[in-house]
């Protein structure tokens, strides 16, 4: 197999990239300066060699603990539970969350054979139980789908007996959308979660 076919095959394995896009990307790399291609190769090598899951929260980092878990200025008593490391980046991007994270590594999905044992639930409970700074609040930031909601309901059931307040991200009308086009279930959630002005 040629080097070109190798690269096309490897790129096609990435989510959202089909054979055509992979071929286009490969040709773009070949057309550009050799140094550009090598820089990408070095970045990928470094990613594979240096990045690992954080021993505490499951987020990705370069050391045993990720930068968020190491940061002494983060509120260790406020924990946000997310499905994947991608969501950590999204919430971090807001610059509004002062606490720390816990990455579940997915959500309950019986159709995919994913139950509580396949998620990082035991480490979450151990973290709440054994933490030096008593965890005051756990925010369940799983996705607003049937599976995400089931995950949140399950987690609430196992976390609440340990003491912390358990909260769920609000659901409702997205910014920039038009009320006329919002579906019924979202409107019901928005009405239920309304707040005083």
């Amino acid at each position: 197999m040629s080097a070109i076919e190798d690269v096309v095959r490897e790129l096609s394995r990435l989510p959202g990239i089909g054979p055509k896009t992979a071929t286009r990307l490969t040709h773009s790399l070949m057309r550009g300066p050799k140094e550009e291609c090598l820089r990408l190769a070095r970045a990928l090598t470094s990613l594979a060699e240096r990045i690992r899951p954080c021993a505490q929260c499951g987020n990705f980092g370069e050391e045993e603990l990720c930068s968020i878990c190491r940061d002494p200025d983060r509120d260790a008593a406020l924990l946000c539970v997310v499905e994947g490391a991608f969501e950590v980046a999204s919430i971090e991007g807001t610059g509004q969350f002062p606490g720390r994270f816990h990455v579940l590594g997915g959500r309950l999905s019986p159709l995919d054979g994913v139950g509580p044992d396949e998620l990082n639930v035991a480490s979450l409970l151990a973290r709440i139980r054994d933490s030096n700074d008593a965890v005051r609040e756990v925010i369940l930031a799983t996705s607003p789908s049937v599976e995400g909601e089931a995950t949140a309901v399950y987690l609430e059931g196992v976390i609440r007996p340990l003491g912390p307040k358990v909260t769920r991200l609000a659901r409702g009308i997205p910014m920039g959308s038009d009320l006329e086009y919002v579906d019924g279930s979202t409107l019901v959630e928005a009405l239920a979660g309304r707040r005083e002005m």
Partner: peptide
């Protein structure tokens, strides 16, 4: 459109896994 959702299925693992089966 005109959807009827079933939020009750997410209130227990039993309900969700039963519907999934």
């Amino acid at each position: 459109s005109d959807t009827r959702t079933r939020p009750g299925l997410s209130r227990s693992i039993l309900g969700l896994s039963g519907a999934s089966l």
